[in-house]
């Protein structure tokens, strides 16, 4: 097996980012077509801020609503995939630095990952 070095890590990160973005774009586009086909002539206005519905504001809510084929939740699911892409990249970097036995970078990467996880599922 090819040893883990920075070049190989860069190759994998490149594929990971591309896949995550592409997947997310496809899901967002599908949700968007679905949304426009149902609400083409509804007025669009985002002048006044009303926080999005609860079902679009948490990972659990989005998953549940997307499961029942709510178009806007499908868009939101795609956006969650997009947000997860850099998180996955950091997760992969953690494994890669571990395999390279680079303790300093394992520690740095763990801090970054902890911040990301806190933002996504932490109490706030």
């Amino acid at each position: 097996m090819q040893p883990w070095n920075d070049e190989r890590v860069e190759q994998v990160i490149s594929v990971l980012l591309r896949t995550g973005v592409l997947l997310s774009a496809v899901v967002v586009l599908a949700g968007g077509v679905c949304f426009l086909s149902q609400h083409a002539n509804a007025p669009a206005g985002y002048h006044d801020f009303r926080a999005a519905l609860d079902s679009y504001r948490s990972i659990r809510g989005v998953l549940r609503s997307a499961g029942s084929l709510d178009c806007r939740a499908i868009i939101q699911l795609g956006l969650l995939l997009l947000i997860a892409t850099p998180v996955a990249r950091v997760g992969f970097s953690l494994v890669a630095f571990w395999l390279e036995r680079d303790r300093k970078y394992v520690a740095l990467t763990l801090v970054v990952l902890a911040v990301l996880v806190f933002s996504l599922i932490g109490p706030h």
Binding site: V28, A51, A52, I75, L79
Partner: peptide
């Protein structure tokens, strides 16, 4: 979680 991400606009 604060509702800033509005799906129909963000799409």
């Amino acid at each position: 979680s604060r509702g800033y991400i509005e799906p129909a606009l963000t799409m």
